[in-house]
Design a protein around this nucleic acid. Structure first.
Lengths: 265, 265
DNA sequence: TAGTGGTCTAGACCACCGG
DNA sequence: CGGTGGTCTAGACCACTAA
């Protein structure tokens, strides 16, 4: 059953191989769109067994530089479109300017076309019983009927983010646009402002963790890749939480930016 | 070489086994402090090969419920002390109250003792040539000499966070406390305010990604576990960045909270 | 030293993808 | 159909930890 060289090396062979492949991608030897050599070819090239190459490729996938599909192979991803998600996207001027929050993102990448690649798919808009944690945030009893708006966002054709907004029924019942796929210029926040609500602040909480199997398939991620879970409360001057947004996204190539005023309190 | 049952199942065996173990932990069958049965014992119990158990345990580790060490085994972690890291920690009142920012954290967990478990170890304080990205943020040429303050934070005895602050030399040269391990009540921000600087805002950028091998060992993480990389600019009213803080932490059980004022601009 | 996890091998069968 | 990745096996040797 083979010579069994053993694990005596300082740095394991599979890590060496993974680093070598990652370097080749970063150095441009393997360009975006190229296929990484197949595992069986790597087995020959490096003179190791399939299991070792397999482990190496797990590392390469974790680097986020490659997209692996089953019967096909591992393709080097396009120049990763680093997205900047800034707290500035909630500036009132953006809403008045007709931009929804998610369109107020900007791109760090030089080719600032990334905004054009954004697509939204609405999966569900309608009544729903508020889940536990959401109800807490909205200040309503668990199980209360709320309006849910469940969307899936695409970037370059691949799903990168699911977002569900929950709004108390009495808040939304007289705003018909909130029940339609396109809530109009400025997004749902602009409609809420039209209806007389004034926002005081938005409170976002973020956690990062490895994707579960279900999430990995929903977002077309390599299993175990990190995801960021974001929960946002939209709070009015009246102190009421009129929306909770529950967002899950691939941590992959996204940068969050928050500007914290050094308020003299 | 065995019967090679193959991968024909809808859900792979190693995922089933991993889920089963995770359920046992969540259900309390395996309590905090308990050792998960050894891999060889799991091989017998489930009647699968070592490689399959190995893959299952990788999944279990990724769930963050378990801490695996080499010659020892996998121990179920204590009730994860969920830490809340709020943007409120930069409130001026905290500085004037004598609290450094990192002590202004609060605990979500019921036993609010987690603050007492915090320890800091200073690894280096002194001059350093500013790294590329840091120099950019400070608005100085790369390679300029700056003051670096490199710390390692512990929680319950285990390292959970490394942080390095970079400050321009001309800013710090007349503030001796910034060269000492303990900068005094309110931390370095209070000392900068004492010296006449007034903060306008703090700008934090966050990214999440899998830990590199080096980072995993530095923070005592399971390899591949997600980490959060945080960079913060401290900006004065004069528009100057007087500090850049570079922080790396286990994404494990930390929650970031940001309050975004809905400024009417 | 006994037991644990970590690495590696040389094979097998399967499911998915393209032509 | 042939090639690709995904799962699994039954072993081997090694490094770490604790008694």
């Amino acid at each position: 059953m083979g010579t069994a060289v053993g694990g005596g090396r300082a740095v394991p062979r599979y890590v060496q191989i993974a680093d070598e492949i990652i370097q080749q991608i970063r150095a441009g030897v393997l360009k975006p769109g190229d296929l990484v050599p197949s595992e069986s070819e790597l087995v020959e090239r490096y003179g190791v067994s399939g299991g070792t190459i397999r482990k190496a490729m797990v590392e390469v996938r974790a680097s986020g530089l490659v997209d692996t599909r089953h019967g096909k192979g591992s393709m080097v991803k396009d120049r990763p479109p680093v997205r900047l998600r800034s707290s500035d996207r909630f500036r009132a001027s953006h809403r008045r300017g007709g931009k929804a929050a998610y369109l107020a993102e900007s791109a760090l990448a030089e080719s600032a076309q990334s905004g054009a690649m954004a697509k939204v798919s609405v999966l569900y808009i309608g009544p729903m019983e508020a889940p536990e944690g959401i109800a807490d945030r909205l200040g309503v009893p668990a199980g209360t009927q709320v309006l849910a708006r469940w969307r899936l966002y695409f970037r370059n054709g691949v799903p990168v983010e699911t977002a569900t907004s929950y709004l108390p029924w009495d808040v939304v019942k007289d705003i018909p646009q909130l029940f339609s796929e396109d809530p109009g210029p400025g997004g749902i926040y602009a409609r809420l402002e039209d209806d007389g609500h004034t926002f005081a602040e938005f409170v976002e909480t973020l956690t990062a963790r490895p994707a579960s199997k279900a999430e990995a398939s929903e977002l077309a991620l390599s299993p175990g890749a990190p995801v960021v879970h974001l929960l946002r409360n939209a709070v009015t001057e009246a102190g009421r939480v009129v929306e909770v947004c529950d967002t899950l996204m691939a941590a992959d190539q996204i940068v969050f930016e928050y500007r914290i005023p050094a308020a003299a309190d």
